[in-house]
Simulated assay, not measured.
Amino acid sequence: MRIPDTRGPLTSALFTVLAQAPDAAGTELDRLYRLAARQVAGTGDIIGDEDIQLALFCLYELHYSGLDSVSDNWEWEPALIRVRQLVEEPFEAALRAAAHQAAGDFELPDRGAITSDEVADVLFGLAAMDTGPSLSRYVARKASLEQLREFLVHKAVYQLKEADPHTWAIPRLSGRPKAALVEIQADEYGGGRPERMHSALFARTMRGLGLDDRYGAYVDAVPAVSLASVNLMSLCGLNRRLRGAITGHLAIYEMTSSQPNRFYGNGFRRHGFGAEVTHYFDEHVEADAVHEQIAGRDLAGGLVEAEPHLLADVLFGASAVMALDSRLSAHLISSWEAGASSLRTAVPAAA
């Protein structure tokens, strides 16, 4: 991925550091750490902080496809990991607060042992509590062609690497939950056929609307909350202690995906697009109806049966998804209803 434009002093300092070799950036690394400490202490909304969320997104990107012209040796540079952890701690605290608010009065079972079926029931109950604005219904009934393109731009930050953050959990699991996650991920990656990978299907949808399908092409265009949604996945996937959260994240994703994707597909059909564009959404209507049972019972449920103390983190991961999705949906809908763009920068019109 190319290095994005800076959004403030933190990303400016980070990109200055990354332009050098790790063994030549000592002074700049110290400055970066001090700057990060000041910035996270001074922000009033870390989830919506453009500079912080972009910096964290790029730090995580070193563990995925990397950044153009940046040495791979930065990936595990201890001083840079220190900076990432400095930002992660308040970010996680803000996510936990948002997740707690999203869950409302939802209560955990008041006993230690809980079966996998009971875990699934808890997660389905949590999903049913989601009362946030319905972006999928707006897309189905009202979204203009330009708003559909914006919708895809927001989603592209994750969908063009769909499944990758959850795959980090595979070596952190064993037995039943590991097998369940591998089964889900095999479908996400197209069952061995690259043209059927969900990321490839989404890229085809983007091309159908005249958008650039290269990963990271629109990072500059999306706001902090879109980046925060992806950073949540990376935070939970890359930290073993949060293996419960990443399974809860995937479970609630699957449990709340089938019907919205039906609406999304209908929104594109309303504008005259055919299967070449809607295949991505139509695929998820069917696949996620199956995945929700596997993710809820065998993945998240199997994990909690094996490690009961992880139930709270499973629910944190699930509730955090709901909180950020609700915030992003509210941003898109309020922007569109006001006749404004939901993006930071304009996306060129389709050729």
Rank of each mutant, 00 (worst) to 15 (best):
I333H: 08
G132M: 05
A37M: 05
G44A: 09
T131V: 08
F281A: 01
F273D: 00
I52G: 10
D117L: 15
G125M: 11
F202T: 12
A350S: 14
V277T: 07
P171I: 02
H291R: 06
G301W: 02
A93R: 15
M206P: 11
A98E: 09
T247P: 05
R38F: 04
A251W: 05
S341N: 11
V157E: 00
E118H: 02
F124T: 11
W76S: 09
Q53H: 08
R241Y: 12
D325W: 06
G265R: 01
G190D: 09
G26R: 12
D117K: 08
G317R: 03
P308A: 03
A295R: 00
R214N: 10
R262G: 04
D288M: 04
Y64C: 08
H154T: 01
I333L: 15
G274A: 10
A200H: 12
P171C: 05
P90T: 06
V230K: 01
E77P: 09
H63M: 06
Q259M: 03
D110Y: 03
H271N: 03
S258R: 11
G210V: 07
R84Y: 13
L135A: 05
Q101R: 13
W74P: 04
V40Y: 01
A338K: 02
L108F: 09
K178D: 06
E337V: 10
V321E: 13
R172D: 10
